[in-house]
Measured scan of single mutants.
Amino acid sequence: GIDPFTGEAIAKFNFNGDTQVEMSFRKGERITLLRQVDENWYEGRIPGTSRQGIFPITYVDVIKRPL
Results as ranks from 00 to 15, higher is better:
residue 1 G to H: 11
residue 1 G to V: 12
residue 1 G to N: 12
residue 2 I to A: 14
residue 2 I to P: 13
residue 2 I to M: 13
residue 2 I to D: 15
residue 2 I to Q: 14
residue 3 D to S: 13
residue 3 D to Q: 12
residue 3 D to F: 11
residue 4 P to G: 13
residue 4 P to H: 14
residue 4 P to R: 12
residue 4 P to W: 15
residue 5 F to S: 11
residue 5 F to L: 13
residue 6 T to N: 13
residue 6 T to G: 09
residue 6 T to H: 14
residue 6 T to Q: 11
residue 6 T to P: 13
residue 6 T to C: 14
residue 7 G to D: 09
residue 7 G to P: 07
residue 7 G to L: 08
residue 7 G to R: 09
residue 8 E to C: 15
residue 9 A to W: 05
residue 10 I to M: 07
residue 10 I to W: 06
residue 10 I to Y: 07
residue 11 A to G: 08
residue 11 A to C: 04
residue 11 A to S: 05
residue 11 A to T: 03
residue 12 K to V: 09
residue 12 K to M: 09
residue 12 K to R: 11
residue 12 K to D: 02
residue 12 K to Q: 06
residue 12 K to H: 04
residue 12 K to A: 07
residue 12 K to S: 06
residue 13 F to A: 11
residue 14 N to S: 10
residue 14 N to F: 05
residue 15 F to V: 02
residue 16 N to H: 12
residue 16 N to R: 11
residue 16 N to M: 12
residue 16 N to L: 11
residue 16 N to W: 13
residue 17 G to W: 02
residue 17 G to P: 06
residue 17 G to S: 09
residue 17 G to I: 03
residue 17 G to N: 04
residue 17 G to E: 03
residue 18 D to M: 14
residue 19 T to D: 13
residue 19 T to R: 14
residue 20 Q to I: 14
residue 20 Q to E: 15
residue 21 V to D: 14
residue 21 V to N: 14
residue 22 E to K: 10
residue 22 E to I: 05
residue 23 M to W: 04
residue 23 M to C: 03
residue 23 M to A: 02
residue 23 M to E: 00
residue 24 S to R: 05
residue 24 S to I: 03
residue 24 S to V: 03
residue 25 F to H: 02
residue 26 R to I: 13
residue 26 R to L: 13
residue 27 K to Y: 06
residue 27 K to V: 12
residue 28 G to H: 05
residue 30 R to S: 07
residue 30 R to Q: 08
residue 30 R to L: 11
residue 30 R to H: 12
residue 30 R to M: 10
residue 31 I to S: 00
residue 31 I to N: 00
residue 31 I to Q: 00
residue 31 I to H: 00
residue 32 T to R: 08
residue 32 T to C: 10
residue 33 L to N: 04
residue 33 L to S: 03
residue 34 L to C: 08
residue 35 R to L: 06
residue 35 R to W: 09
residue 35 R to C: 09
residue 36 Q to V: 09
residue 36 Q to T: 06
residue 36 Q to L: 10
residue 36 Q to F: 07
residue 36 Q to E: 09
residue 36 Q to D: 03
residue 36 Q to Y: 07
residue 37 V to C: 09
residue 37 V to E: 02
residue 38 D to I: 05
residue 38 D to P: 02
residue 38 D to A: 09
residue 38 D to G: 11
residue 39 E to W: 08
residue 39 E to S: 11
residue 39 E to D: 13
residue 39 E to R: 10
residue 39 E to G: 11
residue 39 E to T: 09
residue 39 E to M: 10
residue 40 N to D: 12
residue 40 N to A: 11
residue 40 N to R: 10
residue 40 N to G: 11
residue 41 W to P: 00
residue 41 W to R: 07
residue 42 Y to E: 01
residue 42 Y to T: 03
residue 42 Y to W: 15
residue 42 Y to L: 10
residue 43 E to C: 14
residue 43 E to T: 04
residue 43 E to P: 00
residue 45 R to K: 12
residue 45 R to E: 08
residue 45 R to L: 11
residue 45 R to W: 10
residue 46 I to M: 05
residue 46 I to E: 01
residue 46 I to P: 01
residue 46 I to F: 04
residue 47 P to E: 14
residue 47 P to W: 09
residue 49 T to P: 02
residue 49 T to I: 02
residue 49 T to V: 03
residue 49 T to F: 03
residue 50 S to D: 12
residue 50 S to G: 12
residue 50 S to P: 10
residue 50 S to Y: 10
residue 50 S to Q: 11
residue 50 S to A: 11
residue 51 R to D: 02
residue 52 Q to G: 06
residue 53 G to D: 01
residue 53 G to S: 01
residue 54 I to Q: 06
residue 55 F to A: 00
residue 55 F to G: 01
residue 55 F to S: 00
residue 57 I to C: 11
residue 57 I to Y: 05
residue 57 I to R: 09
residue 57 I to F: 06
residue 57 I to L: 09
residue 58 T to H: 12
residue 58 T to F: 13
residue 58 T to D: 13
residue 59 Y to Q: 06
residue 59 Y to N: 04
residue 59 Y to A: 11
residue 60 V to C: 07
residue 60 V to S: 01
residue 60 V to A: 04
residue 60 V to I: 09
residue 61 D to W: 15
residue 63 I to S: 05
residue 63 I to G: 04
residue 65 R to D: 15
residue 66 P to V: 06
residue 67 L to W: 05
residue 67 L to Q: 15
residue 67 L to N: 15
